[in-house]
Computed example of a mutant assay.
Amino acid sequence: MRAGTLTRSGVVRFPILARMARPSGATSHAGGDRQASARLPRMADSSFDIVSKVDHQEADNALNQARKEVEQRYDFKGTGASIEWSGDAILIKANTEERAKAVLDVFQTKLIKRGISLKSLETGEPVAGGKEYRITSTLKDGISQENAKKIGKIIRDEGPKSVKSQIQGDELRVQSKSRDDLQEVQRLLKAADLDVDLQFVNYR
């Protein structure tokens, strides 16, 4: 028991305990929580880029393999069949349309084995010239504006609402606070009927 003070009249008086003062600048628990929350940084968006790139070294390897096979196969003997680079294009020649298409088939098979999608190969129709047929193909690098708009529309109309996309040249940037929603966009685009080979890169 706290000691009191004896007065002259014999009465013992006990001092009133002072309420402990709150330290200067202190706030209530609720107020402190609000201030702490305000100081927390906002969760940054996660993102990835949608690109369409061709490994040109692998494409060159596929062409070289196709050329060797065409030179060695008996059914191409005497047909004038060949495949070679013509600038940035692939030029196929043969003395019949059927043989020219057969060379193209060999090249396409080599591309697939090298991990290059046939969506990246744009091929023209066989063209007759003199005694030979020619087929010209090109490799598509980058996403065209038309396809970029299609991709953006799919994301906007069918993807999670938290996801935003933006066309950046021949690529698209996709952002969301939810990584699960970004994964959903990838599943959505893989299942879409697009004539372009897509890769998802630069995860952040």
Rank of each mutant, 00 (worst) to 15 (best):
M1F: 12
M1T: 14
R2V: 14
G4Y: 11
T5L: 13
L6K: 15
L6N: 08
R8W: 11
G10R: 09
G10M: 05
V11F: 14
V12D: 04
R13A: 03
F14H: 14
P15N: 09
M20H: 10
M20K: 13
M20S: 12
A21L: 12
A21H: 11
P23S: 15
G25D: 04
S28A: 10
A30G: 03
A30C: 00
G31N: 14
G31V: 08
D33W: 12
D33L: 14
D33R: 14
R34V: 13
Q35A: 14
S37L: 13
A38P: 01
R39M: 11
M43W: 02
M43I: 12
A44R: 02
D45Y: 03
S46P: 00
S46L: 02
D49Y: 07
I50P: 02
V51Q: 11
S52V: 01
V54S: 06
V54G: 06
D60Y: 01
D60C: 02
N61R: 15
N61D: 09
L63F: 02
L63P: 00
L63V: 01
A66D: 04
K68R: 13
E69Q: 14
E71I: 00
Q72K: 12
Y74N: 02
D75H: 10
T79G: 09
T79K: 12
T79N: 09
G80M: 05
I83F: 10
I83E: 11
E84T: 08
W85E: 02
S86Y: 07
G87Q: 05
I90N: 03
I92W: 03
K93Y: 01
E97V: 10
E98F: 14
A100P: 07
A102V: 09
D105Y: 10
D105I: 09
V106I: 15
V106W: 05
F107N: 10
F107M: 12
F107C: 10
G115E: 02
S117T: 03
S117H: 02
L118G: 06
K119V: 10
K119R: 15
T123G: 06
E125K: 14
P126K: 11
G129E: 14
G130S: 07
K131T: 07
K131R: 09
K131G: 05
K131F: 04
I135M: 11
S137K: 07
T138H: 13
T138D: 04
G142T: 05
S144K: 02
S144Y: 03
E146D: 13
E146W: 02
K149R: 11
K149T: 07
I151P: 06
G152S: 13
I154V: 08
I154M: 03
I155W: 03
E158M: 08
V163P: 02
S165C: 07
I167L: 07
I167Y: 04
G169M: 05
E171S: 15
L172T: 04
L172K: 06
L172Q: 04
R173V: 14
D180E: 13
D181W: 00
L182R: 00
V185R: 06
Q186W: 00
Q186S: 00
R187Y: 06
R187W: 02
L188H: 08
L189Q: 06
A191D: 11
A192T: 09
A192I: 11
D193Q: 13
L194G: 08
V196D: 02
V196S: 03
Q199K: 13
N202M: 04
N202T: 08
Y203D: 01
R204N: 10
R204M: 03
